[in-house]
Design a binder for these strands. Structure first.
Lengths: 204, 204
DNA sequence: CTTGAATGTTCTCCATTTGTTCTCTATGCT
DNA sequence: AGCATAGAGAACAAATGGAGAACATTCAAG
């Protein structure tokens, strides 16, 4: 599967990563293999990526990562809690050309104190882009701002995901985002907020 | 994961914090790394914060904190990659009563080989629940199944997020999920798949 | 409270390192 | 010969990170 050159390059990359804690540059790989050509190393490294043994963080220097070998357990798991954010997808430019690559920190977005997840059932929030089967991430808390999407418990019995609005006279409106359903209005003592929607995710 | 400069800065911060009991200033980090530029150190430190290895107390001087997990493992790479999945939110029961608590593993859902993220612009996929400003996570690849949502490059020029269908005669249909937009049909050589949508997330 | 030094933030400019893409060449194998 | 593998090296583009200026903010001393 791997050519001799690819095997040597991979071994060197593993050793370097283990001893230095950071990926080698192409020049360093070349030197480690007793040659001088970055161009050749580029070909080898690309081949390794195509073979699936390594991963290359696009547009980064020293962007080689080992793909997890499940046999060794987490040996080289660098806990990748972020993804490259390559750009915006629109009607416009090819994404490969987009220069300002950021990093999307999943930890920051999705994890935090007092968070939990719920699987959504039903279509009552469909016009807010929350579909049946989506997962919503909720920050636990008793309070909400006007306009937040909340998990609300009605009469300590029924839990729903709705948009929250205060109304005059201590009333509370819980509005679905679906034209075929009607907002509901309750006395505030009947409604208990369990948490506020902070993010949402869907897996295809 | 970290660039060489980031790694050196992080090591210095750890040492300083351990020996002085207080975080270093940017000028001190610079001096410790043999340079003089506070501006450069600012960039490095911000990058470390974005990577999640440190935290910056906003508006404070010497406001750097390590995000070390107190438990032994993973010196600086924290792995809080899961959330409690408490249950289903529906029109039904209160969530507190739902017994079968699972765990939602974010790493498994969102991270994987050859993934990258894109910010969505525009409303062309609104009926698939993908809204303007959402982030989609793409598995890089040249191939797609019929019905997949793909990032497609048309004539090597224009990148869009559309639903993919094969048509007879080597034609390819790229269909938006928006009733006010029309599907587009191309000769297959004009369309290059860049990746397939695997998940989607939104932050409120 | 006022003041000034220390510190953080933002910016432009620039050099070095690194990745990428070429072409050309050499070697071994069928 | 024809092909696969891979090294050399040049040319270019992008990432990285240092220098330093200008400004804003924090914080402690008076």
């Amino acid at each position: 599967m791997l050519t001799p050159g690819q095997r040597k390059a991979l071994d060197f990359i593993k050793d370097y990563l283990a001893s230095e804690g950071i990926a080698p540059s192409l020049a360093e790989i070349a030197e480690g293999l007793g040659t001088t050509s970055r161009g050749s190393m580029h070909k080898q490294v690309q081949a390794l990526a195509a073979a699936g043994v390594i991963r290359i963080r696009p547009g980064r220097q020293r962007g080689i990562e080992l793909v997890d070998d499940e046999d060794t357990g987490m040996e080289n798991a660098l806990c990748p809690d972020s993804l490259p954010l390559l750009g915006r997808i629109a009607a416009g430019q090819p994404i490969v050309a987009i220069p300002d690559e950021e990093t999307l920190n999943l930890t920051e977005f999705l994890l935090g104190p007092n968070r939990f997840a719920l699987r959504v059932q039903g279509d009552s929030m469909i016009e807010a882009g929350i579909l049946d089967g989506d997962t919503v991430i909720i920050r636990r808390g008793e309070t909400a701002e006007d306009g937040d999407i909340v998990v609300a418990l009605i009469d300590d019995d029924e839990a729903t995901l709705k948009r929250f609005h205060r109304r005059v006279g201590g009333k509370i409106e819980l509005a679905p985002e679906n034209r075929s359903l009607r907002p509901m209005i309750f006395e505030d003592h009947r409604v208990r907020i369990q948490g506020v929607l902070v993010s949402q995710l869907r897996v295809y």
